[in-house]
Each structure stands twice: as structure tokens, then as C-alpha cells.
Amino acid sequence: MKDFGFTITKDRQIDYDQHDHRLLQFVLENEPSFQACISCGGCTATCSAGNLIDFNIRKLNMLLRRGETEGLEKEINKCMLCGKCMLVCPRGINTRNVILKIKEAIQKFR
């Protein structure tokens, strides 16, 4: 079967109990503001990288909160850390630190 990559919605359930939540725990412990997301999509709308390529930081974070980490590394590498998302976030989430922590967690738990 062709691998459509991470951003294509897979035709299956989120098997929450089977997922490895260490990555999420690590991010939440180190950047608690991550919890406050209401999925408004402001970050994705303003994203410099998302303006150029299929890169949805909101969805990525949402999937991470559900324990879905497949393909995360490849996706998160698209971020340029420019900080626009941080400026528009209505919930005051430290989005850049979330990215740093996700990258750190990937290295840690790979």
C-alpha cells in the first residue's frame, strides 16, 4: 500500500490505550501551556512553513495529544521556529518551546 505520509487521515480509529504516551508526558511536563490548546488553528494559518508546504502544526499537536506519533519527526522538521504562531496563539501557548520539547522527546524516546 502506498504510504501517504503523516498528514493524510488514516482510515482507522485512534487506539488511545495502545499508544505510547511518554512523548506527550515529556512535552507536558516541560511545557505545561501545551495543554491549553483549543485547536483554533491560528498557528497553522500564520505558519511560515505551512505557507509553503503541507505542514499543520495544530493537527500535529492534536495527534500528539492523542498519542499518535507516527511520522512526527519528519513533520516537525519543517518548522523554522520563526515564532509567528506564538504571537497569534490566543491561549498564550509557548509554541516554540513545544516544538523544541517535541524534538528533544523524539531524540530521547526513539
Binding site: S48, N51, L52, M80, L81, C82, G83, R96, L100
Partner: peptide, 23 residues
Amino acid sequence: SDKEACCGRPLIQSGHYENAAKL
């Protein structure tokens, strides 16, 4: 004006020098 790449400074400030170099 529209399709912009970041200058790379934020990546430098976060220590991602190799990434910054690409931008």
C-alpha cells in the same frame, strides 16, 4: 511578500545552527 522563508536567526538562537544554515 508572500512565500517567505525565515531569516534563520530564531533557529540560531535556539541552537539549531545546521538548520539555520539551510535557510
